[in-house]
Design a protein around this nucleic acid. Structure first.
Length: 127
RNA sequence: UGAGAUCCUUGCUUUUGCGAAGAUUUGGAGGAAAGUCCGAACACCAUAGUGCAACAUAAUGGUUAAUGGCCAUCGGUCGUGAGAUCAGGAAAAGUGCAACAGAAAGAAUGUACAGGUCAUGCUGUAGUGAAACCAGGUAAACUCUAUGUGGUGCAAUGUCAUGUAUACCAAUGUUUGCUUGUCCGCCGUUUGUAUUUAACAGAUGGUGGCAGGCGGGAGGGCGGCACGCUCGAUUGUUGGAGGGUAGGCAGCUAAAGUGUGCUGGUAACAGUACGCUCAGAUAAAUGAUAAGGGCCAUGCCAAGGCGUGGUACAGAAUUCGGCUUAUAGAUUUACUUAUUUA
RNA sequence: GGCUCCAUAGUUCAAGGGAUAGAAUAAAAGUUUCCUAAACUUUAGAUUCAGGUUCGAAUCCUGAUGGAGUCA
């Protein structure tokens, strides 16, 4: 079971991020929100993922860092359960839209429901 | 009150290290990394000169790459005291300001009482006020004196690749005067050759062009302003629409570095010997979870065990030296005060 | 990350160093009306915080806190 989260799996390109936010769809499992877009890039990975926390809700850099670390950890541990070898490539951005801090357990649980909701939405026939 | 300090261990995982992958090993946030308040390094831009303005600092000596920081001393203020704190130059260059109260607030003098004189605020006391004649107060009012200051900041800057356009449209402003010429064109008059017309050559006048000179010139530049200098019709200003903005590399971390000892100095600090290498990311790493141990508080049994809770403030972004602010707990030393005891 | 600016009633703005800090609007109470609105009367309400200079500070100075803008 692959639990690594390497550099090429991270969403870094500013152009791709702008395109993601302007054209992508989203799924919500409070306090998490996933913005995704089917796209293509050169690196040999299936999904590029980034995390983000609003400076408006958390003023201190320590608190933002902590939440981002928890989100990355939850993604790393859970991603292999949901994503195997589908041919499409996706860009993900996971946002924390809550206003209070939580512990690792709830974020991990919500990450599972978020991934399930994403897969369900993708399996539906497109209008 | 000052100095000083800022929890530890193990396995799993993540990140970094080489062209890639795997394994092993090694390293990985701070005393404030914060605020961006001072001072520098470094980089780019600007820089003929003069003057003005603006800003900063302000006892004396030292320290440092430098400072408005730090150290020592003198002086003021506060405190019983150990100590703390101070933008701590000039009011005898000039201008201004002083509500209320008070006769009067810098111009001069008035009331009551007492004293004194030939006579008079001439002297004292009272009364108002922060301040009442004293070369008064106020310069964190203008000012003066002394000293200093070009600007912008690593999103600086360079470079690779890609692309390329002092392009386009609209409005508006300006596009001028005199003079010179072995120069050129056009028109007229006249002379010669010729004479049927035409044509050719010369002289002269007008007009236009070109070139040069002198002046004027909207506006631009010299990044606070003025003088001054300079560019100036191949143009100035404003608006519209459009292009560009991605990415890689360098800058980037071994340095005014840091630990211990010794020497000099009251100290800040300096010198020296031996050792150490201690993050370089860029939608931005330094984490999650579990177990155990420290420390603090507390409860139970009853004298070393068990349980519960707590363990701060806070996260590098070019790099240093300071300042300021946030901060749980632990430790050491010196001194002061109060109480108690002797 | 660097740089610049701002802070006065619930809100929008005033206020030459002189303290009773003002105006509009919002709020509350009352008058008027069968009731509401409008109108009128009255009331309460603030200098972001901490120091300093000064006889006296919203104003001057220093530090902190909060907010806004900007960079190619």
């Amino acid at each position: 079971m692959d639990q690594s989260y390497k550099k090429i799996e991270k969403l870094k390109s500013q152009k791709l991020i702008e395109k993601l936010f302007s054209e992508g769809n989203s799924v919500v499992a409070y306090p998490l929100r996933l913005v995704y877009l089917q796209t293509s890039f050169e690196d040999p990975v299936q999904i590029k993922t980034g995390v983000s926390v609003s400076k408006r809700n958390f003023k201190k850099a320590v608190h933002r860092n902590r939440i981002k670390r928890l989100m990355r950890e939850a993604y790393r541990l859970n991603k292999s359960r949901y994503f195997n070898n589908s041919p499409e490539q996706y860009a993900f951005m996971i946002l924390y839209i809550g206003k209070t801090q939580t512990d690792f357990e709830t974020i991990s649980k919500k990450m599972n429901t978020l991934m399930a909701a994403f897969l369900k939405q993708q399996s539906l026939p497109k209008p």
